[in-house]
Computed example of a mutant assay.
Amino acid sequence: MEAFLVSTGLVALAEIGDKTQLLSLVLAARFRKPWPIAAGIFVATLFNHALAGAAGAWLTTLLGPQVLRWILAASFIAMAVWMLIPDKLDAGEQERASHLGVFGTTLIAFFFAEMGDKTQVATVMLAARFPNWVAVVGGTTLGMMLANVPVVWFGERATRAVPIRAVHVVSAVIFLALGVAALIV
């Protein structure tokens, strides 16, 4: 349960102001069909994070516990710094092939926008940290849904109501604490 809850909380916080949240806003404004957008976000995130979780679990089989501990600590500390750098939506990510329909466009746009993103990297690290990578993937997927789906339904009002800079600072502190804890424990 710890892996699920930590993963959900961290990714939900890390996702606020992230480029995929901005992508949610763009898709909602463009298509105005929240259900297929939310479904596309879910499927893309689940698939992307399942791959990331499997990669994290695989890392634990390759590396000894001491090496893994140092890599995880450095990764969490680097993630803390990365959280303080605001994301922007790349111009090319706004326009995807709309001939795929709303669901298909969202699925492809989200899957590729999430590649190498903070939340995907966090999923790899969390899956390497916790022995139950399925709980991690479930948690990170839920965290993505908690951060992105309200934006699909409530649009720009939702992003203005949350102080994004404060959320990024809190997320950075949590990642820093996880990094320090990995060094100590």
Rank of each mutant, 00 (worst) to 15 (best):
A54W: 12
S75M: 08
R129T: 15
A109V: 00
W133R: 10
W70R: 11
L51I: 13
F112H: 10
A74H: 09
K118Q: 03
D87G: 03
F76W: 01
V121I: 15
A55H: 02
F111E: 02
S75C: 12
R96S: 08
A135Q: 11
G116W: 05
R69D: 04
Q120P: 04
M125G: 07
S75W: 05
Q94D: 05
T61P: 01
L62A: 02
D90G: 10
L63H: 09
K118H: 02
R129S: 09
M115G: 04
A52F: 05
T106F: 00
D117A: 10
A135V: 00
V121Y: 05
A74N: 06
G56A: 04
D87S: 06
V102M: 05
G101Y: 04
R129D: 05
G64W: 06
F103I: 04
D87V: 07
L63K: 07
V81P: 00
A127Q: 09
M125T: 07
A57F: 12
T61H: 14
W58L: 15
W82S: 07
L107A: 10
A73Y: 04
A73H: 06
G101P: 00
I77Y: 06
G53V: 08
G92H: 13
A78D: 04
G92P: 00
G101S: 06
R129F: 14
R96P: 00
V67Q: 12
T61W: 10
A78P: 01
A55C: 10
N132D: 15
T60K: 15
L63V: 06
A128I: 08
F111A: 15
L100S: 01
T105C: 11
T105L: 02
G92W: 12
A52H: 03
A135F: 13
A113R: 01
S75H: 00
W133M: 15
A122G: 10
S98G: 09
